[in-house]
């Protein structure tokens, strides 16, 4: 459905994208993950034909975006970072304009627009002027515009930005539903969102592709069993002793008293070692009740740092 090959984009001397290739099949939701400035929006702009790549090709449904733009664009719906709305138009007129642009047959337009308004939950604002809508509604009108013409391929740049929690759930459900029959590319810098809606994740960093896999692979990186945050009841000295009695060398750091006599600790073991069970046994033996235990929070940055490290090592190995 979407075939992206060796995309490279230069802005002057700055390299925004460096040799990015991936493809997505029908029935797949692909997530583009990356920090701000990683090249997500550039990638999406190239896929939808808004800008051209310095090198590389984009095939949509087998049509090349450069040599057969009309055919390729006809099967793509795009919701850019900032929804492309005309503030002076009414929602219905705007969607009607989108229908004409995307060549929806005149007889079907009314029904088509109504269906999409219902899907995106904007039926009640259909008659209103866009500039008077709240940010969440504008975002959804933008999404409705992308759905006009029932495109096979949907490209959504951070579709849930500006929505309230219940709307976020609605939109995610909608994306999953649409993903069953079409191909969707979603970008986000929110890891949990990507995990929830995508079958596949491509991670970009500084214009390079540093990972391509299922969310499962990524969450393996999210859980770091060698890092634990725990609340333990008892004397901190005893806790320190219990930790030093562990078979592996661990570092422990007290991060404060949480309740009376209960302290929070951050314990870190050697890389790639699960210290949780050993920790439990050690504390049980020392008669120190563990009140709470959770895996160490790994931030987005941690994952990126690790991925970048990995990719650098790979390059060195080559």
């Amino acid at each position: 459905m979407i075939d992206v090959k060796n995309l490279t984009k230069h802005y002057g001397s700055k390299i925004a994208l460096n040799n990015v290739s991936f493809s997505a099949k029908e029935g797949q939701v692909l997530g583009l993950l990356g920090l701000n400035g990683a090249g997500k929006t550039t990638t999406m702009n190239i896929i939808t034909g808004y800008i051209g790549a310095t090198e590389g090709t984009v095939l949509i449904n087998g049509f090349d975006m450069i040599s057969e733009p009309a055919k390729a664009k006809a099967s793509v719906g795009y919701l850019p970072e900032q929804p492309p709305l005309y503030p002076d138009m009414k929602v219905k007129d705007y969607l009607d304009f989108a229908c004409k642009l995307k060549k929806v047959k005149e007889g079907d337009r009314e029904r088509h627009i109504n269906r999409i308004c219902e899907q995106t939950g904007i039926l009640n604002v259909c008659g209103r002027v866009i500039k008077n809508l709240s940010k969440g509604y504008r975002q959804r009108v933008g999404l409705a515009q992308a759905l006009i013409g029932d495109p096979k391929v949907l490209v959504l740049d951070e579709p849930t930005v500006g929505l309230d929690p219940s709307q976020i759930i609605e939109v995610r459900t909608l994306i999953r539903e649409l993903g069953k029959t079409g191909t969707i590319i979603v970008s986000s810098h929110i890891l949990s969102e990507i995990k929830e809606i995508c079958d596949r994740v491509v991670v970009l960093h500084q214009g390079r592709m540093i990972a391509d896999g299922t969310p499962g692979n990524l969450s393996g990186m999210i859980h770091a069993p060698n890092k634990v945050v725990t609340w333990v009841e008892g004397d901190p000295d005893l806790v320190n002793m219990a930790v030093s009695s562990l078979p592996m060398t661990c570092t422990i750091r007290e991060t404060g008293q949480k309740e009376k006599g209960i302290y929070e600790y951050e314990i870190k073991g050697p890389e790639n070692t699960d210290i949780r069970a050993a920790l439990f046994r050690a504390f049980a033996k020392a008669d120190l009740p563990m009140i709470a235990i959770k895996g160490g929070d790994i931030s987005m940055e941690d994952i990126f740092l690790r991925l970048i490290e990995d990719s650098n090592k790979e390059e060195e190995a080559k």
């Binding site: 939808t48 034909g49 733009p69 055919k71 664009k73 793509v76 795009y78 642009l101």
Partner: peptide, 8 residues
Amino acid sequence: DQLLLTAP
């Protein structure tokens, strides 16, 4: 312009 330029 993103709407116009990405439409067929």
